[in-house]
Design a protein around this nucleic acid. Structure first.
Lengths: 100, 100
DNA sequence: CCAACATTCAGCCGTTACGCTGAATGTTGA
DNA sequence: TCAACATTCAGCGTAACGGCTGAATGTTGG
């Protein structure tokens, strides 16, 4: 199980850091967070000037990375921020800041 | 000065998150850190299986992002980790974890 | 001075990222 | 039922990324 877990963790790092690499996706996370942690795809797309189809793809990247989860609510999709997943980044950083 | 500072900060985020987006570059930072914070380009390249010219480019990305600094020492180049710059990531994360 | 060495520079090349647009899907309200 | 709406899917072009290789640069020891 060790091997699997650490492999999974490596993939998780990969997904999370890749997701955070784009300014638009970082902005999405901030927007959702400061909107109370939940926002519909349309609201999110509305905060950007580029085509909402483009935002859709960013949302998918964030969801695949586990940084957003989404729930269908009628004809709209509500995205929720997954703060826990952001802690992966914290964990990685702690390699450098942890006291000996 | 406010405008300039915040613009610079945005660029800094961009550079840092982009640099961290690649597993090889994250590995470089960890390697340097656990080697006492300093390592020559050759030593770093030695920890990878791909051509060292490829590592060179990764090192440049990290240096441009301010995550590594480098000092010429004779015929070798010593890279030092810039922990302070890593704190930018911490700062960004704190948006989500700061107590109200 | 010169050969060996440490490293970078320049350019090729296949793959992926990200913007766009034009459908398609699925849901709601009248 | 049907039109309006919210959202995603599929495909296209361009630009960037990351691997490679073949030089070029600069430094050292003998």
């Amino acid at each position: 199980m060790h091997k699997r877990d650490s492999a999974a963790r490596l993939d998780a790092y990969e997904a999370v850091f890749t997701a955070l690499a784009h300014a638009a996706r970082r902005r999405v996370l901030l927007a959702v967070y400061f909107n109370g942690g939940m926002m519909s795809a349309g609201e999110i797309a509305g905060t950007f000037s580029h085509a909402w189809q483009t935002t859709t793809r960013h949302l998918q990247v964030l969801e695949r990375a586990g940084l957003l989860s989404c729930e269908k609510k009628g004809r709209m999709r509500i995205y929720r921020i997954e703060k826990k997943r952001l802690e992966l980044v914290k964990d990685w950083l702690d390699h450098f800041f942890r006291k000996p």
